[in-house]
Simulated scan of single mutants.
Amino acid sequence: MTRHDTYFVSGGLRCAAWHYPATSDALATRAGRPCVVMANGFGGTRDTGLQGFAESFSAAGIDVYLFDFRHFGDSEGEPRQLISVPRQRQDFHAAVDAARRLPGVDRDRIALWGSSYSAGHAIVVAAQSPFLSGVVAMTPFTDGLASLVYISRIGSPKHTARLAVLGAADLIQAGLGKGARTIPITGPPGTDAMMTAPGVAEAYTAAAGPTWRNATPARHALAMPRNRPTAYATKVDCPVLVQVAKADKTVPNKATRKMAAKLDKGRIEEYPVDHFDVYDGPWHRRVVAAQLEFLTRVLR
Protein backbone atom coordinates (compact mmCIF):
# COMPACT_ATOMS: atom_id res chain seq x y z
CA MET A 1 0.00 0.00 0.00
CA THR A 2 1.51 3.33 -1.08
CA ARG A 3 1.60 6.07 1.54
CA HIS A 4 3.26 9.48 1.30
CA ASP A 5 4.46 11.62 4.20
CA THR A 6 3.33 15.20 3.84
CA TYR A 7 2.20 18.16 5.95
CA PHE A 8 0.00 21.23 5.95
CA VAL A 9 0.03 24.42 8.00
CA SER A 10 -2.64 25.27 10.58
CA GLY A 11 -2.37 28.17 12.97
CA GLY A 12 1.18 28.80 11.77
CA LEU A 13 2.34 25.27 12.71
CA ARG A 14 3.04 22.18 10.62
CA CYS A 15 0.61 19.31 10.93
CA ALA A 16 1.90 15.93 9.81
CA ALA A 17 -0.22 13.91 7.41
CA TRP A 18 -0.20 10.70 5.39
CA HIS A 19 -1.60 10.69 1.88
CA TYR A 20 -2.84 7.31 0.72
CA PRO A 21 -3.53 7.57 -3.03
CA ALA A 22 -6.35 5.37 -4.26
CA THR A 23 -5.10 2.06 -5.63
CA SER A 24 -8.20 1.63 -7.78
CA ASP A 25 -9.81 3.82 -10.43
CA ALA A 26 -13.28 2.62 -9.45
CA LEU A 27 -14.46 6.12 -8.48
CA ALA A 28 -12.18 8.21 -10.69
CA THR A 29 -13.61 10.76 -13.12
CA ARG A 30 -12.06 13.39 -15.35
CA ALA A 31 -12.03 15.71 -12.35
CA GLY A 32 -10.02 13.22 -10.30
CA ARG A 33 -10.55 10.84 -7.40
CA PRO A 34 -12.61 11.42 -4.24
CA CYS A 35 -10.81 11.87 -0.93
CA VAL A 36 -11.58 11.18 2.74
CA VAL A 37 -9.97 13.41 5.37
CA MET A 38 -9.35 11.48 8.60
CA ALA A 39 -8.26 12.26 12.16
CA ASN A 40 -8.19 10.28 15.39
CA GLY A 41 -10.17 10.81 18.56
CA PHE A 42 -9.41 11.97 22.11
CA GLY A 43 -5.63 12.09 22.43
CA GLY A 44 -5.18 9.76 19.45
CA THR A 45 -2.56 9.86 16.72
CA ARG A 46 -2.68 8.87 13.06
CA ASP A 47 -0.74 5.66 13.81
CA THR A 48 -3.20 4.50 16.48
CA GLY A 49 -5.70 2.08 15.00
CA LEU A 50 -6.54 3.99 11.80
CA GLN A 51 -4.28 2.44 9.16
CA GLY A 52 -6.70 -0.40 8.46
CA PHE A 53 -9.52 2.03 7.71
CA ALA A 54 -7.31 4.14 5.44
CA GLU A 55 -6.04 1.14 3.49
CA SER A 56 -9.59 -0.15 2.95
CA PHE A 57 -10.71 3.19 1.56
CA SER A 58 -7.67 3.45 -0.71
CA ALA A 59 -8.30 -0.02 -2.12
CA ALA A 60 -11.89 1.01 -2.92
CA GLY A 61 -10.75 3.95 -5.07
CA ILE A 62 -10.78 6.74 -2.49
CA ASP A 63 -7.72 8.83 -1.62
CA VAL A 64 -7.13 9.29 2.10
CA TYR A 65 -5.61 12.26 3.93
CA LEU A 66 -4.90 11.13 7.50
CA PHE A 67 -3.38 13.72 9.82
CA ASP A 68 -2.22 14.46 13.36
CA PHE A 69 -3.74 17.42 15.18
CA ARG A 70 -1.38 20.09 16.42
CA HIS A 71 0.45 19.13 19.63
CA PHE A 72 0.20 15.40 18.81
CA GLY A 73 2.27 12.76 17.07
CA ASP A 74 4.55 14.19 14.41
CA SER A 75 2.81 17.58 14.29
CA GLU A 76 4.24 20.72 15.82
CA GLY A 77 2.81 22.51 18.84
CA GLU A 78 3.65 23.22 22.47
CA PRO A 79 2.76 22.12 25.04
CA ARG A 80 2.79 18.58 23.77
CA GLN A 81 -0.39 16.51 23.99
CA LEU A 82 -2.64 19.55 24.37
CA ILE A 83 -6.28 18.87 23.48
CA SER A 84 -7.86 22.11 22.24
CA VAL A 85 -11.29 21.96 20.60
CA PRO A 86 -10.94 25.26 18.68
CA ARG A 87 -7.48 24.34 17.40
CA GLN A 88 -8.48 20.84 16.40
CA ARG A 89 -11.47 22.14 14.45
CA GLN A 90 -9.19 24.67 12.76
CA ASP A 91 -6.79 21.83 11.91
CA PHE A 92 -9.64 19.83 10.35
CA HIS A 93 -10.56 22.79 8.14
CA ALA A 94 -6.92 23.25 7.12
CA ALA A 95 -6.59 19.52 6.35
CA VAL A 96 -9.64 19.70 4.09
CA ASP A 97 -8.11 22.65 2.24
CA ALA A 98 -4.87 20.69 1.82
CA ALA A 99 -6.69 17.57 0.61
CA ARG A 100 -8.55 19.58 -2.03
CA ARG A 101 -5.16 20.62 -3.46
CA LEU A 102 -3.73 17.10 -3.69
CA PRO A 103 -2.71 16.02 -7.21
CA GLY A 104 -5.33 13.80 -8.78
CA VAL A 105 -8.02 14.60 -6.20
CA ASP A 106 -11.43 15.96 -7.17
CA ARG A 107 -11.82 19.00 -4.91
CA ASP A 108 -15.59 18.71 -5.07
CA ARG A 109 -15.74 15.14 -3.72
CA ILE A 110 -14.41 15.37 -0.18
CA ALA A 111 -15.75 13.51 2.86
CA LEU A 112 -14.78 13.64 6.52
CA TRP A 113 -14.09 10.68 8.80
CA GLY A 114 -13.88 10.96 12.55
CA SER A 115 -13.84 8.67 15.55
CA SER A 116 -15.08 9.61 19.02
CA TYR A 117 -13.81 13.16 19.73
CA SER A 118 -12.79 13.80 16.12
CA ALA A 119 -16.20 12.57 14.93
CA GLY A 120 -17.71 15.45 16.88
CA HIS A 121 -15.27 17.82 15.21
CA ALA A 122 -16.26 16.40 11.82
CA ILE A 123 -19.92 17.24 12.50
CA VAL A 124 -19.01 20.84 13.33
CA VAL A 125 -16.67 21.23 10.34
CA ALA A 126 -19.36 19.82 8.03
CA ALA A 127 -21.85 22.37 9.38
CA GLN A 128 -19.35 25.09 8.46
CA SER A 129 -18.39 23.61 5.05
CA PRO A 130 -21.44 23.17 2.78
CA PHE A 131 -19.34 21.82 -0.11
CA LEU A 132 -18.55 18.51 1.65
CA SER A 133 -20.00 15.26 0.27
CA GLY A 134 -20.45 13.32 3.51
CA VAL A 135 -19.31 12.48 7.02
CA VAL A 136 -18.54 9.20 8.76
CA ALA A 137 -19.00 9.67 12.52
CA MET A 138 -17.83 6.50 14.28
CA THR A 139 -18.78 6.21 17.98
CA PRO A 140 -19.02 10.02 18.08
CA PHE A 141 -18.59 12.36 21.03
CA THR A 142 -21.59 14.67 20.65
CA ASP A 143 -22.32 16.48 23.90
CA GLY A 144 -19.80 17.48 26.57
CA LEU A 145 -22.45 18.16 29.20
CA ALA A 146 -24.06 14.77 28.72
CA SER A 147 -20.63 13.14 28.72
CA LEU A 148 -19.74 14.80 32.02
CA VAL A 149 -22.85 13.32 33.64
CA TYR A 150 -22.15 9.94 32.05
CA ILE A 151 -18.53 9.88 33.23
CA SER A 152 -19.66 10.78 36.75
CA ARG A 153 -22.10 7.89 36.78
CA ILE A 154 -19.62 5.33 35.46
CA GLY A 155 -16.83 6.57 37.71
CA SER A 156 -17.91 8.84 40.51
CA PRO A 157 -18.63 12.52 41.16
CA LYS A 158 -15.43 12.50 43.22
CA HIS A 159 -13.42 11.56 40.11
CA THR A 160 -15.04 14.36 38.10
CA ALA A 161 -14.32 16.87 40.86
CA ARG A 162 -10.73 15.69 41.08
CA LEU A 163 -10.28 16.27 37.32
CA ALA A 164 -11.63 19.80 37.72
CA VAL A 165 -9.12 20.52 40.49
CA LEU A 166 -6.26 19.15 38.38
CA GLY A 167 -7.45 21.19 35.40
CA ALA A 168 -7.42 24.38 37.45
CA ALA A 169 -3.96 23.55 38.80
CA ASP A 170 -2.70 23.06 35.25
CA LEU A 171 -4.02 26.46 34.16
CA ILE A 172 -2.41 28.16 37.17
CA GLN A 173 0.89 26.37 36.57
CA ALA A 174 0.85 27.33 32.88
CA GLY A 175 -0.02 30.92 33.74
CA LEU A 176 3.02 31.09 35.99
CA GLY A 177 5.22 29.91 33.15
CA LYS A 178 5.95 26.55 34.79
CA GLY A 179 4.76 24.37 31.90
CA ALA A 180 1.86 21.96 31.77
CA ARG A 181 0.56 19.65 34.48
CA THR A 182 -0.35 16.46 32.68
CA ILE A 183 -2.61 13.57 33.59
CA PRO A 184 -3.10 10.23 31.81
CA ILE A 185 -5.54 10.12 28.91
CA THR A 186 -6.71 6.72 30.09
CA GLY A 187 -6.15 4.62 33.17
CA PRO A 188 -7.75 2.05 35.48
CA PRO A 189 -10.85 2.96 37.50
CA GLY A 190 -10.00 5.16 40.45
CA THR A 191 -7.00 6.86 38.84
CA ASP A 192 -6.63 10.52 37.86
CA ALA A 193 -7.05 9.80 34.15
CA MET A 194 -9.54 11.38 31.77
CA MET A 195 -10.99 8.01 30.71
CA THR A 196 -11.28 5.41 33.48
CA ALA A 197 -14.23 3.16 32.59
CA PRO A 198 -13.48 -0.55 33.11
CA GLY A 199 -11.51 -2.03 30.21
CA VAL A 200 -10.96 1.27 28.39
CA ALA A 201 -7.27 1.64 29.29
CA GLU A 202 -6.49 -1.88 28.05
CA ALA A 203 -8.45 -1.40 24.82
CA TYR A 204 -6.98 2.01 24.04
CA THR A 205 -3.37 1.02 24.71
CA ALA A 206 -3.78 -2.14 22.64
CA ALA A 207 -4.44 0.04 19.57
CA ALA A 208 -1.73 2.59 20.39
CA GLY A 209 0.89 3.38 17.76
CA PRO A 210 4.54 4.40 18.23
CA THR A 211 3.83 8.13 18.56
CA TRP A 212 0.94 7.83 21.02
CA ARG A 213 1.56 9.10 24.54
CA ASN A 214 -0.73 8.50 27.49
CA ALA A 215 -0.71 12.06 28.77
CA THR A 216 -2.49 15.37 28.26
CA PRO A 217 -2.48 18.74 30.05
CA ALA A 218 -5.23 18.54 32.66
CA ARG A 219 -6.83 21.85 31.63
CA HIS A 220 -9.07 20.16 29.09
CA ALA A 221 -11.10 18.63 31.90
CA LEU A 222 -12.54 22.14 32.36
CA ALA A 223 -13.15 22.74 28.66
CA MET A 224 -14.72 19.42 27.68
CA PRO A 225 -18.27 20.21 28.92
CA ARG A 226 -18.37 23.17 26.50
CA ASN A 227 -17.68 20.92 23.50
CA ARG A 228 -21.18 20.29 22.12
CA PRO A 229 -21.19 19.22 18.45
CA THR A 230 -24.88 18.37 18.83
CA ALA A 231 -25.61 22.13 18.68
CA TYR A 232 -24.38 22.15 15.05
CA ALA A 233 -26.25 19.09 13.78
CA THR A 234 -29.18 20.96 12.24
CA LYS A 235 -26.75 22.96 10.09
CA VAL A 236 -25.19 19.92 8.40
CA ASP A 237 -26.40 19.62 4.80
CA CYS A 238 -24.47 16.54 3.64
CA PRO A 239 -25.25 12.87 4.40
CA VAL A 240 -23.85 11.56 7.70
CA LEU A 241 -23.29 7.96 8.77
CA VAL A 242 -23.48 7.72 12.57
CA GLN A 243 -22.13 4.46 14.00
CA VAL A 244 -23.08 3.65 17.58
CA ALA A 245 -21.46 1.10 19.88
CA LYS A 246 -24.44 -0.01 21.97
CA ALA A 247 -22.22 -1.12 24.89
CA ASP A 248 -20.20 2.11 24.83
CA LYS A 249 -18.66 3.00 28.20
CA THR A 250 -16.88 6.10 26.88
CA VAL A 251 -19.59 8.26 25.27
CA PRO A 252 -23.31 8.34 26.11
CA ASN A 253 -25.38 6.75 23.35
CA LYS A 254 -28.52 8.65 24.35
CA ALA A 255 -26.78 11.90 23.42
CA THR A 256 -25.52 10.38 20.16
CA ARG A 257 -29.01 9.32 19.14
CA LYS A 258 -30.37 12.78 19.93
CA MET A 259 -27.71 14.36 17.75
CA ALA A 260 -28.39 11.91 14.91
CA ALA A 261 -32.10 12.73 15.03
CA LYS A 262 -31.28 16.38 14.29
CA LEU A 263 -29.39 15.56 11.09
CA ASP A 264 -31.33 16.24 7.91
CA LYS A 265 -29.57 13.40 6.07
CA GLY A 266 -28.43 11.26 8.96
CA ARG A 267 -28.25 7.48 9.00
CA ILE A 268 -27.62 5.63 12.24
CA GLU A 269 -26.28 2.10 12.62
CA GLU A 270 -25.76 0.30 15.91
CA TYR A 271 -23.45 -2.55 16.88
CA PRO A 272 -23.43 -4.69 20.08
CA VAL A 273 -19.88 -3.67 21.06
CA ASP A 274 -17.92 -1.26 23.27
CA HIS A 275 -16.23 1.95 22.14
CA PHE A 276 -12.87 0.46 21.10
CA ASP A 277 -14.13 -2.84 19.65
CA VAL A 278 -14.54 -1.21 16.22
CA TYR A 279 -10.78 -0.90 15.62
CA ASP A 280 -10.00 -4.60 15.14
CA GLY A 281 -11.59 -8.01 14.81
CA PRO A 282 -14.91 -9.11 13.28
CA TRP A 283 -16.85 -6.00 14.24
CA HIS A 284 -14.16 -3.83 12.70
CA ARG A 285 -14.88 -5.55 9.39
CA ARG A 286 -18.62 -4.93 9.76
CA VAL A 287 -18.07 -1.28 10.61
CA VAL A 288 -15.65 -0.73 7.69
CA ALA A 289 -18.02 -2.44 5.26
CA ALA A 290 -20.79 -0.02 6.25
CA GLN A 291 -18.43 2.93 5.88
CA LEU A 292 -17.33 1.78 2.42
CA GLU A 293 -20.91 1.35 1.25
CA PHE A 294 -21.74 4.83 2.50
CA LEU A 295 -18.64 6.53 1.12
CA THR A 296 -18.78 4.97 -2.33
CA ARG A 297 -22.39 6.12 -2.59
CA VAL A 298 -21.94 9.74 -1.46
CA LEU A 299 -18.64 10.21 -3.30
CA ARG A 300 -19.77 9.02 -6.75
Results as ranks from 00 to 15, higher is better:
77 G>C: 06
79 P>S: 14
80 R>K: 15
80 R>Y: 11
80 R>G: 12
80 R>A: 10
81 Q>Y: 15
83 I>K: 08
83 I>V: 15
84 S>F: 08
84 S>L: 08
85 V>C: 11
86 P>V: 07
86 P>D: 03
87 R>M: 03
87 R>K: 14
88 Q>S: 00
89 R>D: 09
90 Q>F: 05
91 D>A: 07
92 F>Q: 11
93 H>I: 05
96 V>E: 00
100 R>M: 10
100 R>V: 01
101 R>C: 13
102 L>H: 04
102 L>V: 01
103 P>V: 02
103 P>G: 04
104 G>R: 03
104 G>K: 12
106 D>M: 02
107 R>W: 11
108 D>H: 12
108 D>A: 14
108 D>W: 15
109 R>D: 01
110 I>W: 06
110 I>G: 00
110 I>V: 15
111 A>D: 00
111 A>N: 07
111 A>K: 00
112 L>K: 03
114 G>N: 05
115 S>W: 14
117 Y>C: 01
119 A>R: 07
119 A>W: 04
119 A>N: 09
120 G>E: 06
120 G>H: 02
123 I>E: 00
123 I>F: 14
127 A>D: 00
128 Q>F: 10
128 Q>S: 03
129 S>A: 14
129 S>Q: 12
130 P>N: 02
131 F>V: 12
132 L>Y: 05
133 S>L: 06
136 V>E: 01
137 A>C: 10
